[in-house]
């Protein structure tokens, strides 16, 4: 018996159609007073300038140069955010309850949300596509070393891999290891080395 399922078929103008449909939706919502002509741009601007991976990078750089701050960040991420000069909102949407886990020579952490795409917005902004992809979500929990190798991260057998899945309200991220050769660098220069991938555990920090 052949399957009744017609298969994964896409229209030739898949993206053109979605672009037209979302513009139709947004324009109707503006006309009907649901949102304004600036609402969507306001949301997007917030994540470009106020909440994004540049915030997480500052926190990690501070933790690298200040062991006491690192201890406080690991103990209570939200409280530690208040110590730095960030815009209001570090405990706002999708960051109400954040936790950070530290990578060491003995432990490597990686974050996943198998049910959807939970991500710490104030410290890392919005999730990249790899994090939202069902293939990553399905595979990393069972074979994290194989998955990490596909991202270019090769771990020694002695390293314990910890996979953290976000099924409740805690939003997780990773404090990566400070790379060798960065002694004496300023916090600003250290922050510039960080990527969202390093702060979710699928990359190491490169100089």
């Amino acid at each position: 018996m052949p399957s009744n399922y017609p298969g994964f078929q896409y229209d030739a103008d898949r993206e053109t159609f979605s672009a037209a449909k979302v513009k139709a939706l947004e324009s109707l919502l503006i006309e009907k007073g649901v949102i304004t002509g600036n609402t969507v741009d306001t949301v997007l601007g917030y994540f470009e300038t106020e909440m994004g991976p540049f915030n997480g990078a500052k926190l990690v750089a501070r933790a690298w140069v200040d062991p006491d701050f690192k201890a406080r960040l690991i103990a209570d991420c939200n409280a530690a955010c208040d110590e730095l000069d960030f815009p209001a909102g570090m405990s706002g949407a999708e960051g109400e309850h954040m936790r950070i886990v530290e990578n060491t020579p003995a432990v490597h952490n990686v974050i996943v949300c198998t049910l959807c795409s939970c991500y710490p917005w104030p410290t890392l902004g919005l999730p990249p596509y790899w994090f939202k992809d069902p293939t990553f979500r399905a595979r990393v929990v069972r074979e994290p070393r194989v998955v990490l190798a596909e991202f270019g991260v090769e771990l020694d057998e002695s390293v314990e891999v910890r996979v953290w899945d976000s099924s409740a309200q805690i939003r997780w991220w990773v404090l990566p290891m400070r790379p060798a050769g960065t002694e004496g660098m300023s916090e600003e220069a250290l922050a510039a080395l960080l990527t969202p991938e390093a702060m979710m555990g699928v990359a190491t920090v490169q100089v």
């Binding site: 074979e143 891999v161 996979v163 976000s166």
Partner: peptide, 11 residues
């Protein structure tokens, strides 16, 4: 089908 030396955590 899985790997040694790993722990899976979930909330």
């Amino acid at each position: 089908t899985t790997e040694p030396n790993m722990i899976y955590y979930n909330d």
